[in-house]
Amino acid sequence: MGSLTEVTNTGDGFMATTIDAVVNWGRKNSLWPMPLGLSCCAIEMMSMVGPRFDLARFGAEAMRFSPRQCDLMIVAGTLTWKMAQAARTIYDQMPEPKWVIAMGVCASSGGMYRNYSVVQGVDLLFPVDMYVPGCPPRPEAVIDAVLKLQKRIERERAWSTGRQRPMPANPRGPILARS
């Protein structure tokens, strides 16, 4: 593993690097987000993509509304149990490799909605790579999460079999048992 900064330039018109470095460089600089905009966080997510904050500077502006074209799911907002099955289906439809950002406290932990209708953190349903606190978070905070995720992608194995991260265990019984 390594990054393109570790490229060995021999000065003879070619370079030596690793497959991991080249593939990860491509992946991290062309994240295609799946905007799972569920509530008010989605508004901040839109401004993050817009010209003022401009996520395009980091190569992640190609929002696609088909999960099959995406590799970064941004869960922006309050996920209810009614919606949970749909969110999990969307996650399953995204091709590997895929990453998830839980944007805002509702997606991260249920937030202030400690009640019967809200999923107490989307990591009950699928693995989450970055948690962004805030209600809603500033666009800069989410951009920071994207940048941190890019750093993580840089260090990943480009080829691996099966899921890279384990799916969450089955949390039976009351949600309370989780804390």
Partner: peptide, 8 residues
């Protein structure tokens, strides 16, 4: 319960 029960 007020904190809810996750559907199983």
């Amino acid at each position: 319960p007020l904190e809810g029960i996750a559907p199983d």
